[in-house]
Design a protein around this nucleic acid. Structure first.
Length: 152
DNA sequence: GCCAACGTTGGC
DNA sequence: GCCAACGTTGGC
């Protein structure tokens, strides 16, 4: 499958990912059940992922990465010093999962949310442009993937 | 910084 | 199980 994953660039940007060792990093901090279930049930190693910058000056797609691991427990949920600490999650029954992601490339330019919205008719149902949607990991159909990359 | 939309929590 | 209160997301 194909995916889109959001990150605030102030916290973790695509440049940060590129700078990681081998361009691979655990995508930690997902605390939303729907997003977690996508990782657990539907993601496979090698799946393509759009890197999306949210909550910033120009929100939009900034690059491509790929899924580099199966889902496994997010260690930050057990770390009291982490802002993602969840005291109600127990190691024998972890509540939150993550996958590793691997940098592939930057897009040639930012494909902004504004621009994506202008193509709503061609994209069909797409969670990113649904009103009020806050999902941080969402599936992207093959058609949507090709169409969005065609804009770059 | 504002605020709409949404998810979660907890009292009842 | 309902729902008000609260916290978070994320565009603007």
């Amino acid at each position: 499958m194909n995916w889109l994953m959001k990150s605030e660039p102030d916290a973790f940007s695509i440049d940060d990912l590129k700078a990681c060792k081998k361009g691979i990093e655990p995508w930690d901090g997902i605390r939303n059940y729907q997003a977690r279930n996508f990782m657990r049930d539907s993601m496979s190693v090698g799946d393509r992922v759009f890197f999306y910058h949210s909550n910033c000056k120009v929100p939009g797609i900034v690059g491509v990465m790929e899924v580099a691991s199966e889902a496994y427990p997010d260690p930050t949920q057990f770390d009291p010093k982490s802002k993602y600490f969840d005291e109600s999650s127990k190691p024998e029954e972890p509540r939150w999962l993550l996958v590793d992601v691997k940098y592939v490339r930057h897009t040639h330019r930012v494909i902004s949310l504004t621009e994506i919205k202008e193509h709503a008719d061609q994209l069909g149902d797409f969670p990113l442009i649904r009103k009020g949607n806050r999902l941080s990991i969402m599936p992207v159909t093959d058609q949507q993937w090709d169409y969005l990359l065609g804009l770059e």
